[in-house]
């Protein structure tokens, strides 16, 4: 079958940046006199199998129609988290969504709310900065035991859901609270904090809860549930955020 694939293209060396306050004249003509575009939709006809994923389509376009189409991909199987993008209006991993789930008209744009570097590639530095801000690693100053630090299956279950996060940024970039206030630490960082806060082997909960009690922490969550819809790993993110909020309240009470 043939599908129509629309891709929001942007080349920083050719086009005017999204939202850039360009002078009115510069919007229509460049110094050389050729038209200057901002991010713009380009349509491709692609012959596909219904079981193909959107990532297959992007690879086909890059191979057969335009080698300059730029996107991140690595494992191609929903583990590495490189290819999150806005597909038919929802944040999805391109490697996990098939043509037969989308229909014959497919639109693909970069993740919303993050600066676009080129085509479908967004700048993830801010996102990873927030991830690092919640100290996403084991904090435990006790001397290392002879063997591993053990944990009961029941204790492991408490934070099982949030261990699944692959840091694709689909949740954070789907969050209206984040769009409205880019300083908000965002759902992904809270999920990562949750993974350690509720780990019985970790002793850093207090410092993490302190960080997340900040005005740009958990209270920015308005339980819109966009993050839950966007998460390719099926994590109940809103619940995780509320569990962290409760822990902050409980600690103060």
């Amino acid at each position: 079958m043939e599908v129509t694939l629309r891709i929001l293209r942007y080349d920083p060396e050719q086009d005017v940046a999204m939202g850039a306050p360009a002078a009115p004249a510069a919007r229509t003509t460049s110094a050389a006199g050729s038209p200057v575009r901002g991010p713009h939709w380009v349509e491709y006809k692609v012959s596909v199998d219904p079981m193909d994923r959107v990532l297959d389509l992007l690879i086909k376009v890059k191979a057969d129609q335009d080698g300059s189409l730029s996107f991140r991909r690595s494992c191609g199987h929903g583990i590495c988290g490189s290819d999150a993008m806005l597909i038919n209006g929802r944040n999805r991993l391109a490697c996990r969504i098939r043509v037969d789930q989308l229909g014959k008209k497919i639109s693909v744009a970069p993740l919303p709310g993050l600066p676009v570097v080129k085509d479908l590639i967004v700048d993830m530095n801010g996102f990873f900065g927030k991830y690092r801000s919640v100290k996403p690693y084991l904090i435990n100053d006790q001397p290392e035991p002879e063997r591993e630090r053990r944990q009961s299956p029941a204790d492991r279950t408490i934070y099982d859901d949030t261990t699944k996060c692959i840091l694709c940024a689909a949740c954070t970039s789907s969050c209206p609270s984040f769009w409205a206030r880019p300083e908000y630490v965002g759902p992904a960082a809270i999920v990562q904090a949750h993974r350690f806060i509720f780990d019985s082997r970790d002793e850093g909960s207090d410092e993490r809860l302190e960080i997340l009690a900040d005005e740009n922490g958990v209270w920015r969550c308005r339980t819109i549930f966009n993050c839950v819809d966007a998460c390719p790993r099926g994590i109940n993110i809103t619940r995780a955020i509320l569990e962290v909020s409760s822990a902050i309240v409980g600690r103060r009470g």
């Binding site: 060396e13 890059k62 335009d66 080698g67």
Partner: peptide, 12 residues
Amino acid sequence: SIADCGSVFNTE
């Protein structure tokens, strides 16, 4: 040969 001669994120 390639189509993309750019210097930003040139995955091609």
